[in-house]
Nucleic acid binder design. Structure first.
Length: 102
DNA sequence: AAACTGACTTCTC
DNA sequence: GGAGAAGCCAGTT
């Protein structure tokens, strides 16, 4: 299993209405510094309907890229899922995904 | 196998 | 807080 495959596995687990940062996914995948590789994995995104790549944002909550239409569409989808937005960025303080069961 | 590229992050000015 | 530069990783050519 490659690192990117791990990334997909993690991304799949992101609950609706929440978002995760590239660094976060990278860390959960085993390489906290592989945030970049994560981005590439999303760009390729061989698991479009399976992996909600639109729930992945930069460390600042800013919407970056999106192979399937652009950050505009991405933002709309997040909004529909209930993700809080601050201007053009995601409100990480409220909508960042936490892999903790509480 | 080497070099280039990219949906990143972090430090410094 | 904004702009610029450096560092890292994995994939593609």
């Amino acid at each position: 299993m490659s690192f990117v495959d791990k990334v997909y596995e993690v991304s799949k687990q992101i609950p609706k209405g929440s978002v995760a940062t590239y660094a976060q996914i990278a860390a959960l995948s085993g390489n906290p510094k592989a945030a970049r590789a994560v981005g590439m994995a999303m760009r390729k995104n061989p698991h479009m309907p399976i992996v909600p790549c639109h729930r992945v944002v930069s460390s600042s909550g800013e919407l970056t890229g999106y192979s399937a239409g652009g950050v505009g569409v991405k933002k709309e989808m997040l909004l529909k899922e209930g993700v809080k937005f601050v201007g053009d960025k995601v409100d990480l303080a409220k909508s960042q995904w936490r892999n903790v069961a509480s």
